[in-house]
């Protein structure tokens, strides 16, 4: 899919995803070694965006499995369409049982869920398994099988093996430790908060109308907030929101009043806002 690390950076940038060297290198390796990519990091640094960008670059279909507590095989892998099977049985009254049986367990009645969808077919695919840490431990076992051999066994149909291996991205917010076995099968990538320079480029790309000097100030203030001991530090998503807010407010420079009024965009807890205001000498909030 990619020829070099630089190729990854350039082509991801074309889709609007500015990758740090760590991200570009790891994506390149995941493609080259054919291994799933496990992405961890705080919320709002672009873990899901990365999968979307890779799909766009590769011209691949993005198949997404959103994990949640209680997600199971029938949601993740496949399911038989019972209603349709019943209809089929009642429609064909005069045929023998053997004919019906082989007929209702065919492709036509199979509801393909994300994991199976990603494996079947010849066109390139990117499989995004989002918030893997939310799923139960049993689902991890299921993933192990699918991700190591890229094959799924449906008892009535036989084993389906991928002819074209999908590029797999798993994301996690580390609300639960993923099992060692799953981690071993993946390349590990931690996306942290970007360097100042990179974040400036991101803001400039996403909010091009914002003044350049102001962009720099925005990134510096966010950097200072991240160095504070807050309950929830602002992420890249919040930086962009704040930049948009400032644009909407028509601010052309930062001053106490503007920052004070818009701090709520960056910080989501009242204690954090108070603490940050005190540290930044904003006066009373």
């Amino acid at each position: 899919m990619f020829t070099s690390v630089d190729d990854v950076s350039v082509r991801l940038a074309e889709t609007g995803y500015l990758a740090s060297p760590a991200v570009a290198t790891t994506v390149f390796l995941a493609d080259r070694l054919g291994k799933p990519l496990l992405v961890e990091g705080p919320a709002g640094v672009g873990k899901t965006e990365l999968a979307k960008a890779v799909a766009q670059v590769a011209g691949a279909q993005l198949v997404r499995l959103q994990c949640y507590e209680g997600v199971d095989e029938s949601r993740a892998l496949y399911e038989w369409n019972h209603a349709k099977q019943l209809l089929r049985i009642s429609a064909g009254r005069d045929e023998t049982w053997d004919e019906t049986r082989t007929d209702i367990f065919s492709e036509e009645f199979l509801l393909s869920r994300p994991l199976l969808t990603a494996i079947r077919g010849d066109d390139p695919k990117v499989l995004l398994i989002d918030e893997t840490d939310k799923a139960d431990v049993e689902v991890e076992g299921l993933l192990l099988e699918v991700l190591s051999d890229f094959q799924v066994t449906v008892p009535e149909l036989g084993t389906i093996t991928a002819t074209n291996r999908p590029f797999v991205v798993l994301t996690s917010n580390a609300s639960r430790e993923l099992s060692e076995a799953l981690r071993r099968r993946c390349l590990f990538l931690h996306i942290g908060f970007p360097e100042e320079e990179l974040e400036r480029r991101i803001v400039r790309l996403k909010v091009p109308a914002l003044d350049e000097v102001l962009t720099e100030s925005v990134v510096r203030v966010v950097g200072a907030l991240r160095a504070m001991d807050l309950r929830k530090v602002p992420s890249v998503a919040e930086t962009i929101d704040w930049a948009r807010t400032l644009l909407a407010l028509g601010a052309d420079t930062l001053d106490e009043a503007v920052v004070r009024d818009s701090l709520g965009v960056l910080l989501k807890h009242q204690d954090d806002i108070l603490k940050a205001a005190a540290k930044l000498d904003l006066g009373a909030v």
Binding site: T25, F28, F188
Partner: peptide
């Protein structure tokens, strides 16, 4: 092998991605 030895920071990231399992 895939990354070569020319760029040290890339090598660092590449080895970290393959050898480590957590931040």
């Amino acid at each position: 092998q895939a990354l070569g030895l020319t760029d040290r920071e890339r090598l660092r990231e590449g080895l970290a991605a393959t050898l480590l399992h957590g931040e």
